[in-house]
Computed example of a mutant assay.
Amino acid sequence: MVRVLLVDDEELVRVALQRILESAPGIETVACDGPEALGLTRSTAPDVVLLDVNMPGQDGFSVLRELRALPEPPSIAMLTLLGSDEYLDAALRLGASGYLLKDSEPPLLIDCVRILAAGGVVYAPPQSRSVMGARINAPLPAPTPAKPRGLLTGREYEVLALLAAGLTNAEMADRLGVGMSTVKTHIGALKRKLNAPSRIAIATIAHREGLLELPSTR
């Protein structure tokens, strides 16, 4: 069962999204507005959070920062009516796993939730490709004092290569013959060691630093 937390200040939007998602088998939802998001995330442990960008009092990006600071944050996708380059770039910088439009077709929304729950990333607006390309080609942040090449284990290199190839957590677990929790642990280690806030950032750093050219050794 995929657990989804819907965070939006408009009740009509929350109800509409709940009806769409719960029409699909294997998805259950809980809904709230911005101030309740952190508490509900802690108490319900959702797999996916769909988070409205524009909310009065506490905007979606401030909620995103709070959720990303949790020890085991869920997969978070920003949800908006505006396909804004600025918003998309902010979502990438803050480590969101997705950026979706509220008027997305219901089948697309359901598919995106399943991809997010499996550890994938989804950026649905038409301009996402160009914005993400610009983000990936932008200068990297200052490197951490320790060299990534000497920090990663052989298994972490394997996970890094599969992540950069676009595999989901479930696909990586199947390929490596390990559990999903083990894959998540390795991804968490990669984020810490590479100083990367998201899966996209991990893959970007891996390509830029030439880490994928190294042979995997245990």
Rank of each mutant, 00 (worst) to 15 (best):
P25G: 11
G119D: 09
L162Y: 11
S75M: 02
M132Y: 07
V49Y: 00
G95W: 00
N195S: 13
E11I: 15
P139W: 01
L152C: 08
A124D: 09
A164F: 12
V48Y: 03
G34A: 14
D8I: 11
D89M: 13
T29Q: 12
M1T: 10
T44R: 15
L163S: 06
A138G: 12
V7M: 04
V7P: 03
G119W: 11
C32H: 08
G210K: 08
G177E: 05
R199S: 13
G39R: 01
D89K: 11
A138P: 09
E171N: 02
L194D: 00
F61R: 04
P35I: 14
G95Y: 01
V2N: 00
A118F: 08
N195H: 02
S104L: 15
E209G: 00
A91L: 12
V7Y: 03
L21T: 15
E72T: 12
E72H: 10
V13Y: 05
E10W: 11
S23Q: 13
I187P: 01
P46E: 02
I200G: 05
A203R: 05
S128K: 11
L64A: 08
R135Q: 10
V15I: 08
P74G: 04
L12I: 06
R93L: 13
V53E: 02
E171P: 05
S75T: 04
G60R: 08
I110P: 01
L6D: 00
D52C: 12
L64V: 09
R42L: 12
V2M: 10
P71T: 06
D59C: 12
I200W: 06
M180T: 03
T29D: 08
K184D: 01
E22L: 06
L109D: 00
L212Q: 12
M1W: 04
A16G: 14
T80W: 05
K191Y: 08
A90G: 00
V183W: 06
A203P: 03
T204G: 00
L21M: 11
E28W: 14
E72V: 10
V131K: 05
P197E: 00
V2R: 01
G26C: 10
K184S: 01
G98F: 03
S198E: 05
D174C: 04
V63K: 06
A142E: 04
T153P: 03
G34D: 10
E22A: 14
L12E: 01
E156L: 12
R135P: 02
L152R: 09
G188L: 07
R192T: 11
R175N: 02
L214D: 08
R68D: 11
L108N: 01
V63H: 01
Q127H: 10
G98M: 02
L21E: 03
R68C: 15
C32N: 08
A16T: 10
L81I: 14
P141Q: 09
M132E: 07
E66D: 15
L162V: 07
T204S: 08
G154I: 06
S84E: 04
N169K: 11
I110D: 04
F61E: 07
I115N: 03
L212W: 15
A189G: 07
